[in-house]
Design a protein around this nucleic acid. Structure first.
Length: 462
RNA sequence: GGCGACGUAGCCAAGUGGUAAGGCAGAGGUCUGCAAAACCUUUAUCAUGGGUUCGAAUCCCAUCGUCGCCUCCA
């Protein structure tokens, strides 16, 4: 059985065949760091975290590189407004983004290159493109000659002629072709700039990624990822640059995540319909955002609203219901949970192998939750139950979900809660309901939920 | 206007030729002192109209609608 990946380049699901057996090189476009990150940015990071975790679970050695674009018009603008150095702006939001990645339980990438640290390689690449005839200098700028690259448009499915027809923005008359894009931009006063053969300037956005990808992963990579808003022009241009430079196919698989939707449109800074990662995490635990993504297809748009968030919270709770300890009783039972356990692993793999179909995989996990709960209700042996629960934790862990709450892992409150339960038992035996309800209510205020069953009382964290 | 994706129950959503997973919400029930949780039962013919096929949510065509890209963008 092999993993299938939907490839934007071919518009088909294809079996994963890596350049080197057992190894995957993956480059994912990171954010431009000029403002607070919103949950849409987080979505992209989460999607590719899930991809990476799953590939690793399937025994691939994954080299995962994500860049930070730390020099660009908006960063410069922001710096001007605040009256600080653009580098400071970039650093501030990079630090913040790093923190979000940790908070969201996203595995650390192999490397996080930054454009400003790769200027030399970028200048070399641009010079190389000029030399090869794929680019031309123009008054201190350098432009990519789109017509020179025969495959231009192959990723986005566009034809150069079609795009000319519908061209809406004002065209820079100096350029040879309206679609020619900047590889190098000449410096304006008070802008960060670096020396180059064409004068002081800074790199264009697209060439950064081509160069960083090349310098950290090589001329050819297995997977290139990013949001589907980057397909054109960013990724199209990356292909044009990289393939012109190296004369080989750039990335084998192009993966794109769908856009986070808020109020019926793509969440974005420019529209202003956004929820920042910090805003989100003030109100919800990190697993909720991950669950929203897991419960749908990574390629589809994801609606962000109170209702869909609520669904994800409930879903998380439901998974956790299967982790409750065995009922306190004598005379344990066995069942066919072992068989179900083997089954769920197979079904989980089958779904995830199919282009990371996490929603399908979640369906199987929920089925498994029901089986575990059923076994528990029937009075399953604690060890027996634990074995199944471990599998559930393992599989959800592959998706990056942490079912066990930190308090539950750390606290030594358990012995005191047990003590309260014991006292409450006495009260209940004497039908002192009011007093026993006070204990239950007060514990719930402290996030401890008591559950009375015919076999006795158990507790769990809320 | 061009390119692409999508349209499955009240909501979210899986399923790409063989007769509709799962979650939330709703209804009824079991358990409970009450509750919560869990468990059991129950809720759709797959945007619309044609076509291909023994058979289609699944393939083809058309229509309507939503979203993305064509300008910075995860």
């Amino acid at each position: 059985m092999s993993i299938k990946i939907y490839n934007t380049l071919t518009k088909k699901k294809e079996a994963l065949e890596t350049l080197q057996p057992g190894k995957v090189s993956m480059y994912v476009c990171g954010p431009t760091v000029y403002a607070e990150a919103h949950v849409g940015h987080a979505m992209s990071a989460l999607v590719f975290d899930i991809v990476r975790r799953y590939l690793e679970y399937r025994d691939y050695e994954v080299r995962h590189v994500t860049n930070y674009t730390d020099v660009d018009d908006k960063i410069i603008q922001r710096a001007a407004v605040e009256g600080v150095d653009p580098i400071q702006i970039a650093q501030r939001y990079i630090d913040e983004f790093d923190r979000h990645l940790k908070d969201l339980n996203i595995l650390t990438a192999s490397e996080y290159p930054r454009a400003t640290e790769e200027i030399n390689s970028i200048v070399e690449a641009v010079a190389d493109l000029v030399e090869k005839g794929y680019a031309y200098p123009l008054n201190g700028d350098v432009y990519y000659r789109v017509n020179k690259f025969p495959g231009y448009g192959k990723l986005s499915g566009r034809k150069i002629e079609d795009m000319e027809a519908g061209f809406r923005i004002e065209v820079d008359e100096r350029k040879e072709h309206p679609l020619d894009f900047a590889l190098w931009k000449s410096a304006k006063p008070n802008e960060p700039s670096w020396p180059s053969p064409w004068g002081n300037g800074r790199p264009g956005w697209h060439i950064e990624c081509s160069v960083m990808c090349q310098s950290h992963l090589g001329d050819q990579i297995d997977i290139h990822g990013g949001g589907n808003d980057l397909i054109f022009p960013h990724h199209e241009n990356e292909i044009a640059q990289s393939e012109a430079l190296h004369g080989k196919k750039f990335a084998t698989y192009w993966m794109h995540n769908g856009m986070m939707q808020l109020s019926g449109a793509k969440m974005s800074k420019s529209v202003g319909n956004l929820v920042t990662v910090d805003n989100f995490l003030e109100k919800y635990e990190p697993g909720v955002l991950r669950m929203m993504i897991l419960n749908s297809s990574y390629r589809s748009p994801l609606t962000f609203n109170e209702e869909t968030i609520g669904h994800a919270e409930k879903a998380l709770k439901r998974l956790r219901s299967a982790l409750r300890p065995a009922l306190p009783k004598d005379g344990w039972e066995k069942g066919d949970l072992q068989k179900k356990t083997d089954q769920v692993i197979k079904l989980f793999l089958k779904s995830m192998d199919d282009d990371f179909n996490s929603a399908g995989a979640m369906g199987h996990l929920f089925d498994f939750v029901k089986e575990i709960n059923l076994a528990r209700d029937k009075g399953a042996d604690p060890e027996y139950l634990l074995a199944a629960q471990d599998v559930l934790k393992e599989l959800t862990g592959v998706l990056g979900l942490e079912l066990e709450l930190p308090e539950a892992q750390a606290g030594d409150a358990g012995q005191y809660i047990d003590l309260l339960i014991e006292i409450r038992e006495k009260l209940r035996e004497n039908e002192l309901w009011e007093l026993s309800d006070i204990i239950r209510d007060k514990l719930e205020e402290r996030d401890v939920i008591l559950e009375d069953t015919s076999q006795g009382t158990t507790w769990r964290w809320k």
